[in-house]
């Protein structure tokens, strides 16, 4: 009996050690990134783990630079993120609800078309999107929002899986009580899908913070850094001309760390909803 418990204790210790090693491996590069954001460096390349010289200047520099208006970028991105999250969530939830709970002739074809559309790589459509937005005179943050929301109608899979798992009996009971389908949607469907709404909103909220390619294609035309979003602005900062990499690299890292912090926190908050959503979708298959 004793050897058995010893063995178990040993196994537990082994698992703890394994987990600790893995955790260190995973987190180590992230810590290095944070360290690098404090390092004094003017060569565009960080070659040591521990900075040779610590400085706050990178953070001061990125927050006060007139050439690269970081604060504007953050505000722009916040603007895009809030509006696009609100609209996208509505679109995604509505589409998912309709496809899951209502039956109509277009349902099957729509699901199939959505599946097919998702398999084309996105880059080629960017040229077309550019000209469509130009025609609408929306080569700006508004156009960016429009495109993000435009894609929301196809991102319904997880939410649909969630609605699929809700028992139908609830709807039917409500309808027998005389509620119409809209009332069922608003008073029963939406309240029950709160975790899904939070999840969808957070995902679409985070998208603009990390998109540096599409936002670049739409926003770069203005040539005015004040109109950029933070992802494109930062990316552009070190890629826009010869020599800027050396000059601005550590400021770039500092800027990245600043925006990574809130996103990380949001993501950690979102974990629970993410897990709920995914399982709901996966259960159904």
């Amino acid at each position: 009996m004793k050897s058995y418990s010893n063995q178990r204790r040993f196994a537990l210790i082994f698992r703890y050690v394994l987990l600790a090693i893995l955790a260190v491996l995973w987190i180590f590069p992230i810590i290095w990134i944070i360290l690098a954001s404090f390092s004094y460096n003017n060569t565009g390349f960080v070659s040591t783990i521990w900075p040779e010289k610590f400085t706050w200047q990178n953070y001061v520099g990125i927050l006060t630079s007139s050439q690269y208006p970081f604060v504007n970028w953050v505000l722009n991105t916040l603007f895009v993120a809030v509006i696009s999250a609100t609209l996208s969530t509505f679109v995604t939830i509505a589409v998912a609800y309709v496809l899951s709970r209502l039956r109509f002739r277009f349902r099957k074809p729509f699901l199939q078309i959505a599946l097919v559309l998702g398999m084309f790589p996105g880059f080629m459509s960017m040229i077309a999107l550019y000209y469509i937005l130009k025609a609408l005179n929306m080569l700006n943050l508004g156009g960016l929002i429009l495109v993000y929301v435009g894609g929301a109608g196809l991102g319904f899979y997880i939410a649909k899986g969630f609605f699929d798992t809700m028992p139908r009996a609830i709807d039917e009971a409500a309808e027998i009580d005389g509620a119409n389908k809209w009332q069922v949607f608003v008073h029963i469907g939406l309240p029950l899908s709160k975790p899904m709404i939070v999840y969808t909103a957070l995902t679409s909220f985070m998208a603009p913070w990390v998109d540096f390619i599409f936002s670049g294609i739409i926003l770069s035309t203005s040539g005015n850094p004040k109109t950029y979003t933070v992802a494109y602005g930062l990316y552009n900062m070190v890629h826009s001309a010869k020599g800027t990499m050396a000059q601005f690299f550590t400021q770039f890292i500092a800027g990245c760390v600043i925006i990574a912090i809130p996103i990380t926190i949001l993501f950690i908050v979102m974990q629970k909803f993410y897990v709920n959503g995914i399982t709901a979708g996966a259960d159904k298959g």
Binding site: G216, I217, S220, T221, G223, A241, K242
Partner: peptide, 22 residues
Amino acid sequence: TQNPNGSANAKTDVGKDPSKAA
């Protein structure tokens, strides 16, 4: 204003949409 992707990429920046270029 700035060359969107630097003067080294002027060809592609202008070519993307000459009517919107500087």
